[in-house]
Amino acid sequence: MTHLLECKDLHVKYGGVHALRGISLHVDEGEIVTIIGANGAGKSTLLNAISAIVPISSGEILYEGQPLPRKAHQVVARGIAQVPEGRQVFANLTVKDNLKIGAFLRRDAQGVAADLERVYRIFPRLRERENQYAGSLSGGEQQMLVIGRGLMSHPRLMLMDEPSLGLAPMLVQEIFKVIREINREGTTLLLVEQNAHKALAIAHRAYVLETGEIIREGYGQDLLKDPAVQEAYLGARRTARQK
């Protein structure tokens, strides 16, 4: 069976750093796959390599069995959207224009209008603020906007980079709820997260990345119970000591 996305022995080197050292992973249609790991493990580099923002040194990235193009805009055209880390909105544009620019490559006006409605249904706050400049939104609203903007291209596969980073606990809950909902509505997700607990809880499968290498993989639920993963990424020891 061909996977929706498959990375084979992927290496990325840049600026003298060997950031990815032979990553092999796959994502199947309909899944939520998460990649957990510490800061600097190479999680963002992996997503950026798939999005063709950073060049790959060796290895292959296959999408529906075919090599992915190596220009970022062509990757988007194939149906892969990225929600970049750190709420990178276009601060100089209104909320609505940010969302419209997410649908830049689409020619079906009706489909775009329907997806705009869908984004506004998922995030009613964005509708309220549609004519405000994105730079004036709060951090949480900006995160909603970048997720909404990613949805506007109607991707088959969405790459999400740390969607919960720096958000208040209540918002984190809401964002994870939305991630599940997006997946249930048919979008396949590759999710990079520092919040390993929450990410593993919603993921079908997961990979653990450490200094550019995959050191463990498995079902989300299994990794949650894996003592090594618990110790390194879920803060199990600290919880035990507190008890």
């Binding site: 923002i53 970022a72 988007v76 959207a81 276009f90 224009d97 620019i101 291209s153």
Partner: peptide
């Protein structure tokens, strides 16, 4: 024009929207 403005703000993120630099 809006694509130009997006690219002016951040070319890298604009290319993630499918905008060809």
């Amino acid at each position: 024009g809006i694509a130009i403005q997006a690219a002016a703000y951040n070319m890298r993120v604009a290319s993630l929207m499918g905008i060809n630099p």
